[in-house]
Design a protein around this nucleic acid. Structure first.
Length: 609
RNA sequence: GGUCCGGUAGUUCAGUUUGGUUAGAAUGCUGGCCUGUCACGCCAGAGGUCGCGGGUUCGAGUCCCGUCCGGACCGCCA
């Protein structure tokens, strides 16, 4: 075999090892490694290369003593060249051991080098040694995603994601679940998020929709007697993006016949425990604590409360009744609330701090009307309320301090407004203050179930009720009679699973009685004809012995994001989309030929203005 | 649809507050030297549509208007 050459033939020796596995146990062995040039240290007489593949880094050495021709040829090597080398594993002298590298005790002395592919200088540094602070912009890295994927950081997240898939398959198989695929081209349902539509060539003017979730299909699988269903499935929602929202995302979709809430809870808890155990080696306590929707909103101002810290919201509505302060009186007489939040140790904050908090945080970021605060100095001097005593008498301020439990040296923040807006605003403020206090334990894993969601919510724009979860969610039996005359107070058999303040899944026990399903459509204001047209197949199915059933859908991307401590979904998806739903590498979406539109019987109308 | 932040060598950034000579640094790149480095080191060199368009001005990276791209958030997301 020639000791050095260009890649002129189809032949190159088989890889014997990866760049992550060689150690002192392989001393003296002749090995073949393949990989990318990570870094090159050319000392003139001797050349060191860190060779990189999926498994790690190995230092390889080109020295004239081992093979003069290979050493001379190695002069050509540059970053990201793909090479194949043959060499001998040798021990490094004690003072040249690299303790940072898994393979740092050894190096491979190269006797033969083959360049499999050259590389232009990459547009950004992708070396394993690149510091986080010097990372190229995400924009650029997305454009060259295949280069970004070579970085250990991103690659390890893909590996972690793979591990998550494997645990899911094993767990549900052991629990007796069947993996069933549901259609990707399905019927559009106007309820809920905007659909991605696919025009039908065969049926001019008709469209398929990509699934927002396989909801109806998995219910039909239960009616079909498959008993336990699971699928790792892509879902699509044409809504604006966030750090934790992509237009296409992956759900762990689960449905069980004869399920109760308790069955779903323990099944889900078992999966989470296994994931955390096998992926992170962390034991998480089960069962998870439960919180009703009402309690979550009132105490934490969110239906996905971050429970890694306490900092509860207190209701000061009764304390401030008839206070004479117009802002409070107006809010209360309109059926709203006055809420307080105690920030321990912030009672000595200055005027400037309070002004900034009010202006930039409360008004600008949170969008609340304005912040009222009471500072209780730590030196024992009287409390200092931002509303003067002739407008809000002292007795009410004292009362608020007492009922909120604020102490000397604390700061009491007060917001007022209508339900649930003010609760949610206070919830955002709670999160902000927790970050300022530094009271969020970044290493904690705090799971919780949120239960007893309302079945319906009033849609101000449409002037009708809409389903909070989806139209197939079962009301609680004891609330069923309210559906006619007090729909807002009907509680659903719906639940969300929350981790560290992020919703990672949600589900419900479904309606399996066709009369209840019809009542539900009535409550949603969907005319009989329309419900027949849209969901007739489901209503039909409910006529033929539908078992009680229920399930859950978990956001796989979000779970992987949390497991890998990423701050964006984009970091755990191989080819994600940007905030404007584009994919910068391939330039998706793009226009198509006029012919192809014609074939589909559709026309593109230019956007006006 | 809205609010806010950003866009300057290949890359990461400074320079914009207060307009003024030839737009800097680090890193990468190219060439040279170097036999134990490990983000090697030393010397030299090349490298710029200051996102784009318009305006104000004697003069714009800097001020104004518009626009595009990226990001965070609000609306939206059953």
């Amino acid at each position: 075999m020639s000791s050095f050459s260009e890649n002129t033939t189809n032949q190159h020796p088989d890889r014997t090892h990866t760049c992550g596995e060689l150690s002192e146990f392989h001393l003296g062995e002749q090995v073949v490694l393949k990989g990318w040039v990570d870094t090159r240290r050319d000392l003139g007489g001797v050349i060191f290369i860190d060779l990189r593949d999926r498994y790690g880094l190995t230092q390889i050495v080109f020295s004239p003593q081992d093979n003069p021709a290979a050493h001379e040829f190695a002069d050509r090597l540059r970053s990201e060249y793909v090479i194949s080398i043959t060499g001998t594993v040798s021990l490094r002298s004690e003072e040249t051991v690299n303790p940072i590298l898994a393979t740092g005790k050894i190096e491979v002395r190269v006797t033969s080098l083959l360049i499999l592919a050259e590389s232009e200088p990459p547009p950004f540094s992708i070396s394993s040694h690149t510091q986080k602070a010097k990372l190229a912009s995400e924009d650029l890295r997305l454009k060259y995603r295949y280069l970004d994927l070579r970085r250990p950081d991103l690659r390890n997240k893909m590996i972690l994601r793979h591990q998550v898939y494997q645990v899911i398959h094993r767990y549900f198989d052991a629990e007796g679940f069947l993996e069933v695929e549901t259609p990707t081209l399905m019927k559009s349902t106007p309820e809920g998020a905007r659909d991605y539509l696919v025009p039908s060539r065969v049926h001019p003017g008709s469209f398929y929709a990509l699934p927002q979730s396989p909801q109806t299909y998995k219910q039909l699988l239960m009616i079909g007697g498959l008993d336990k269903y699971v699928q790792i499935v892509k879902c699509f929602r044409d809504e604006d993006l966030r750090a934790d929202r992509q237009p296409e995302f992956t759900q762990i979709d689960v449905e069980m016949a004869f399920a109760t809430e308790e069955a779903i809870y323990s099944l889900t808890e078992g999966l989470m425990a296994m994931l955390w155990e096998e992926v992170l080696g962390v034991t998480i306590p089960t069962p998870f604590p439960r919180l009703t929707y009402q309690d979550a909103i009132w105490k934490y101002g969110s239906d996905k409360p971050d429970l890694r810290f306490d900092l509860p919201i207190c209701n000061l509505s009764s304390t401030f009744e008839n206070s004479g302060f117009r802002v409070f009186d107006q809010a209360l007489s309109a059926g709203g609330s006055v809420l307080g939040l105690v920030i321990p140790g912030f009672g000595d904050k200055g005027r400037g701090y309070m002004d900034r908090l009010d202006k930039t945080v409360v008004r600008k970021q949170i969008g609340a009307g304005g912040l009222i605060h009471v500072r209780i100095p730590s030196d024992g001097t009287p409390p200092n309320c931002s509303v003067k005593a002739h407008v809000l008498p002292d007795e009410f301020v004292t009362g608020a301090i007492q009922s909120s439990g604020a102490d000397t040296g604390d700061l009491l923040l007060v917001l007022c407004g209508k339900w649930p807006t003010v609760q949610e605003q206070m919830g955002t403020l709670r999160l902000h203050m927790a970050r300022e206090l530094g009271s969020i334990d970044e290493r904690a894993w705090t799971f919780a179930w949120i239960t007893e969601f309302p079945l319906l919510q009033w849609d101000e724009r449409e002037k009708r009720y809409s389903a909070m979860h989806h139209p197939f969610t079962s009301p609680r039996t004891e609330d069923l009679e309210l559906l006619q005359h007090d729909p807002a107070h009907v509680r659903a058999r719906a639940y969300d699973i929350v981790l560290n303040g992020m919703e990672i899944g949600g589900g419900s026990i479904r309606i399996h009685d066709k009369n209840v399903q019809k009542q539900m459509f009535d409550a949603l204001g969907i005319p009989k004809k329309e419900s027949e047209e849209r969901f007739g197949f489901l209503l039909n199915a409910l006529r033929y012995g539908a078992p009680p059933h229920g399930g859950i859908a978990m956001g796989l991307d979000r779970i992987v994001m949390l497991l890998s401590r990423s701050t964006s979904l984009r970091d755990v998806i191989a080819f994600p989309k940007t905030q404007s739903a584009q994919e910068p590498m391939s330039g998706t979406p793009s226009t198509v030929e006029r012919d192809r539109l014609q074939e589909l019987n559709i026309q593109s109308i230019p956007k006006s203005e």
